[in-house]
Design a protein around this nucleic acid. Structure first.
Lengths: 197, 197
DNA sequence: TGCCACTACCTATAGACATAGGTAGTTTGT
DNA sequence: ACAAACTACCTATGTCTATAGGTAGTGGCA
């Protein structure tokens, strides 16, 4: 159900075509809520059917058309209601920690590879989060810039700081994950003997 | 697919009935991979069908019976293979961070309630993780104790330390989440004005 | 004897999600 | 003139997951 509100969140910055949504999504909202376009297109249709969005068909080239979605008043209301309602708590479901708990079953080499892969994934993810955070701080993030246009300048700081706050949380998590993986690599060396190569 | 291996992990400690699995699960493996019993029973059946488990029917009372599942050799092999194969990377999907990024849409009271609820959930979760960690350190954790029986005493430290390592990772994440929520509450007070009550 | 909590196991249903495709038009560069 | 890359949108399939039930036997106790 969160996908619907993630899409609403994105579309409050400006009306967009489905294609724009699926592209922009991966560069902003997807950092907190990932979804592939095969989930996005049908959801946009359902949201229009439910009156949260309305679409206008825009010509594109000679024969082509595209559909631009805008949030309706009912959409804004639904988004606000969701914002004011308690969050669902997500249950822990992380294969990396599951595996870590049973590392005595793994080959030492595989255990190391595992932890390195995990660390590298989060390191990459962290770099992306920090880069995005920087574009929020200097307000060059395109979606943010479009969003701020609807607001009085006195509100800008407030809006931006909430977004930075969200990214700070994600960055903390990424850092914690990386540090944990590093400790794991040290532990594997200690328990299995350092690799000989 | 991880559920299958989470169940295998649990059942390597000792054979268990489906009911035991679903009870024990929530006190150990569920900390890293949650699943309700409505998912567990069918999965156990499928695992037996696939030759990873074998079951023996045990009488229970006068008329009742229960099914005890034990991991087969094929099950052990599958578990080892999974342990040695690269992990799937989970995509970010956390409603709390999604909401945090759009907190300018929320009522100040709702924003505070949100963050408090998030903090309280993780505080509770942290207490549980720390309590469980302590039972691993002193080896009083029942599933761990049963597991260690299959191993030579020289291996005990190795096994226990991997489990502690996994919990340490979860504890780090919980602490980071709590600290983030606290910072969020301060931020809301700063941006929306402290609550008047 | 009846009731209740618990053990034991299972089903149904709907929605979420991943993965892997497909079609058709447009723009850009050579 | 043509290919390649991109825009635009959609479908199919299978699995996963949440939620909410259901049935039947057991053990204790009042």
């Amino acid at each position: 159900m969160s996908l619907r509100f993630a899409l609403l969140a994105l579309l409050t910055s400006r009306p967009m075509t489905g294609y724009d949504v699926s592209k922009q999504f991966s560069q902003s909202v997807a950092h907190v809520w990932h979804a592939p376009d095969s989930q996005i297109y049908p959801e946009l249709n359902r949201m229009e059917r439910d009156g949260l969005l309305e679409s206008t068909v825009v010509p594109w080239g000679k024969k082509g058309t595209k559909k631009e979605y805008a949030v309706t008043e009912a959409g804004v209301k639904a988004f606000r209601e969701w914002m004011d309602s308690p969050i669902e708590i997500r249950r822990q479901r992380e294969p990396a920690y599951l595996k870590a708990a049973y590392l005595e079953w793994a080959e030492p080499g595989a255990a190391r590879a595992e932890l390195e892969q995990f660390r590298d994934h989060w390191t990459e993810h962290l770099a992306m989060l920090e880069a995005t955070r920087a574009t929020l701080v200097d307000r060059s993030h395109p979606t943010l810039a479009r969003r701020l246009e609807h607001y009085d300048a006195s509100q800008w700081d407030r809006i931006v700081r909430y977004k930075i706050f969200a990214y700070d949380g994600l960055i903390d998590q990424a850092r914690a994950a990386i540090a944990w993986a590093e400790r794991g690599l040290v532990l594997v060396d200690e328990l299995e003997g350092a690799p000989v190569d």
